[in-house]
Design a protein around this nucleic acid. Sequence first.
DNA 1: CGCGGGATTGAGATGCATCAAGCAAAGTGG
DNA 2: CCACTTTGCTTGATGCATCTCAATCCCGCG
Lengths: 233, 233
Amino acid sequence: MRSSDLPEVRALGLFNSMGEENFEALMQAAYLQTFPPQLDLVHEGDPADFLYVVIEGCVELYANANRREATMAMVHPVSPFILAAVLKDAVYLMSARTRARSKILLIPSEDVRSIFELDDAFARAMVLEMAGSYRYVIKEHKGLKLRSSVERLANMLLRQDHEFGDGSGTFDLPYDKRTLASLLGMTPENLSRAFNTLKPYGVEVDGTTIRLTDIKALKTLAKPTPLIDDPKT
Amino acid sequence: MRSSDLPEVRALGLFNSMGEENFEALMQAAYLQTFPPQLDLVHEGDPADFLYVVIEGCVELYANANRREATMAMVHPVSPFILAAVLKDAVYLMSARTRARSKILLIPSEDVRSIFELDDAFARAMVLEMAGSYRYVIKEHKGLKLRSSVERLANMLLRQDHEFGDGSGTFDLPYDKRTLASLLGMTPENLSRAFNTLKPYGVEVDGTTIRLTDIKALKTLAKPTPLIDDPKT
DNA sequence: CGCGGGATTGAGATGCATCAAGCAAAGTGG
DNA sequence: CCACTTTGCTTGATGCATCTCAATCCCGCG
């Protein structure tokens, strides 16, 4: 792999505390590849052969059943994904595909597990990484069980504005609407209608850019809570 | 704490590999208490002061928002819960209450974290515990997003029969129907109706006991998949 | 025997999905 | 440069799934 990519991988929470020789051993075994968009990296049910780390681009985690499909999460640089399956030496529970041209690091599962046994700092970093992922899914699950689709959309907009907005209330949607809909647990048609029902609350939609002109009103409807919407805790 | 309880705690995956002196230090700091049913142990949003381990009885994890409530999971002996919040030194994302008279071990968070730093085997055990919990929630989330309520019920019945049945197709529901409904993401009324729509598929309900007389038909409807329904992987 | 809580049933409203067009912006190829 | 497809989004009409509210039932328990 290119040495210019090493520092940013090394800087990752998962890798920044482990021993130098173990890190090098991992990178020695790893492959760095660039994939085109819409390429399937992982299929649910397959044995977990690799741990993946998104270095550049974007990866969608999704799942199928009953001839339905649901987007489970989007992974952005620089983050690992499907860590749990690798650790447990089990099958993947989710599929993964690139959503943009993406540079991705593939580390063979066996190497991850053997370094996990060898390097105590790496093991501890894994716990925190797993704990973060766990809490993310719990929040998603709470949102799905406790909120209506309009509320989920409203909260997503508020979060997006807060995290990525410049303070003006204007920002761009992070993905196309079809993906957003699936991520929020609804159909594209319904997302469209949900935007309409949010119009009286100061939500202006122009293609992929959003303007929130009445955040107070939107919050009244969305009733955000850090126990679902705070990505940090 | 009573020494007669130590062996079963020690036998837990989370504790069985750690050093003896560290285990004793943890137990030294811990409290073992028996609680009556329906007692609130933990409220979401509170800082994570303790790691809990159910020794006897049963604990419900639930969450509130928008004046709704949802059961997130049921915890049975012998298992820890809310490990992630303790590790991250964050607030609890879920509330917890006893559902039966329960003997519960409380270990102060700080002690858990300091032993986590000290004992490498303990840290590794945590990773596997977290990975298991993570995969459990992912499966729940997939079920909720990809299946109808009737399908969720059907699969729950099949799983229950497979795990706890005696092979005759007869078994008892693990909780009252109101709780089951919430766990499955529906209202009690709807659970009742869902049982009715399953009647043609050989599902006989008598109070809390269930008889499955046509498992093949039920499976045709439920379309179970290990990627959602297998509790082991 | 009556009381009370969970479970069921029914009726009605609502949320959400589905199906089917329509539309606009962005490619594509002549 | 312009038809022509393609793709993503929207809109409308309709039906099903699920929730809500209310009434009733059932059973265990005082």
